[in-house]
Amino acid sequence: MPEQISIFEIVANASPPVLAVLAILVLASLASWVMIFQRWFSLRQSIIDMDEFEDHFWSGIDLRQLYSELDGQDDLTSIEKVFVAGFKEYSRLTEQSGADTESIMQGAQRAMRVALTREEESLETHLVFLATVGSTSPYVGLFGTVWGIMNSFRGLANMTQATLATVAPGISEALIATAMGLFAAIPAVIGYNRFSARVEVLMKRYNAFSDELTGILYRAAHSRG
């Protein structure tokens, strides 16, 4: 029984374009996994933070007290930033004389919207990269495969006797590129779908919270006025 060629030997003997494709794909896969883990941890942390903040917020604490607790801290969580932005704008506008309730609320809402947009952006970091890897790396792998097969058939043209043994290594080498492309793409696509769904859920909760806060501030502004 002849020794079967190891996959690493095949890769070592691959032609430069195929090698380049493989290198790109390995890097893409590595990078996408870094992103996946990073997003995973940070999104999980965001959800935990959100739960904690909501518990704290609805515990009956005075908003002014909560604001003074949070204001000036460096490492605010996303939802805290939204709250701080909204409340800061509200208190700043109420301190100004002559501002009516509508304009106060509009200002507070605007500040919260800006903060929300910023937070959404930070939640979605790397998701674009994952989407790109997921959608392009199969094509990159396919390019390597086509190139490899092309080469192995071109080599066949010079042979007087075409046997399977002369083309098989080339094709095998070429197919590794496709396998590698899929290896990089599948986790990236799954990661992208999962994380974008999670971001959407989080954003819904943030939006709901900012609406609730608007309602509370509106009530407060009216009772004051």
Binding site: V26, L30, W33, M35, F37, Q38, F41
Partner: peptide, 17 residues
């Protein structure tokens, strides 16, 4: 620090593969 752990994990995963 945010990226160190994910990077190590990704490397370990590829090595395991």
């Amino acid at each position: 620090r945010y990226y160190f752990v994910p990077f190590v994990l990704a490397l370990a995963l590829h090595a395991a593969a």
